[in-house]
Nucleic acid binder design. Structure first.
Length: 271
DNA sequence: CGGCCGACCTGCGGGC
DNA sequence: TGCCCGCAGGTCGGCC
């Protein structure tokens, strides 16, 4: 579910509740994608210094070490009262001096991982190979051009890999390629600089737009306060096969690309 | 090493 | 109604 906008929306709704508070207890449920990597009780007494984001990872910086949180496909963080009974899919809970936050993740592709250091150990393995942050000034058309020139994979696959630009998933890859007029199938190394400039602009515009709308709630994404996102209602192509392209009126098509659904307008996306 | 594919896990909607 | 299949926002590890 959660791509960069949903993770950023989560960060903004969870951060203020956790920052500056002290961990009183930590609890695990069923196994998640990766082991926590420490004894939950060893976290007690540590202070949450800040909540940041790298790609689709949330990073809780503690007075000693860090907790990396990934929402997988179906995860979300929710703020709750510690008296609220666990749901069947609540698999991690952190109670601090001011808040209780739980990871609810039916499919358990998500994870919470402790790492002493962000540049070594478990964290480095998870976030070390991520590409540039798409909403930072580092994300330039030159970065895209340089990466594209070295591979013949499709531009959509390159975006999804995360190794060039972090945090873009299936929704925003489809959306951005549509807005930039680029075919999802186009080999990365065949794209002109001008097209990559448009792609960069499209990515930044769409990610910011979605964050502003609370992210996408395709099925059930809610921010930590339980608020639903609105981006899905204004998606340009994602999930809209058969509907009219807003630019040319022809039917949006869906096809399977690298075992993921791709939505596009065959008429408008010709680069 | 680049690139492809299966695997991980649960829930939901559609077709029969 | 109920079962079975396909599908879903991610990404890692193993293989050629």
């Amino acid at each position: 579910m959660p791509e960069l906008p949903e993770v950023e929306v989560t960060r903004r709704s969870v951060g203020p509740h956790l920052e500056g508070s002290v961990i009183r207890s930590a609890r695990l449920g069923k196994p998640l994608r990766w082991p926590l990597g420490c004894c939950p009780s060893s976290l007690v007494g540590r202070k949450v210094l800040g909540v940041s984001r790298r790609g689709k990872y949330l990073i809780l910086k503690l007075s000693q070490g860090n907790l990396l949180v990934h929402l997988g496909m179906s995860g979300r963080l929710l703020m709750c009262s510690h008296e609220t009974p666990d749901g069947p899919h609540d698999h991690f809970e952190l109670i601090t001096s001011t808040a209780c936050v739980r990871l609810r993740d039916p499919r358990r592709f998500g994870a919470v991982v402790f790492s002493d250091n962000l540049t070594h150990g478990p964290a480095a393995k998870l976030i070390g190979k991520l590409g540039v942050e798409p909403l930072s000034e580092e994300f330039t058309a030159q970065v895209l051009e340089s990466a594209c020139s070295r591979t013949r994979v499709s531009i959509k696959q390159l975006l999804l890999s995360g190794g060039v630009v972090a945090g873009i998933g299936n929704i925003y890859a489809c959306e951005a390629l549509y807005l930039a007029g680029i075919s999802p199938d186009a080999p990365a190394n065949g794209l002109k600089f001008q097209a990559l400039e448009r792609l960069r602009d499209a990515i930044q515009l769409l990610l910011n737009r979605s964050i502003g709308m609370g992210g996408s709630s395709l099925k059930d994404f809610l921010d930590a306060a339980g608020k639903k996102g609105g981006y899905q209602d204004m998606a340009l192509v994602y999930g809209r096969s058969g509907r009219a392209c807003q630019a040319c009126g022809s039917a949006i098509k869906r096809f399977s690309q690298n075992q993921r659904a791709t939505y596009h307008c065959p008429v408008c996306q010709t680069l």
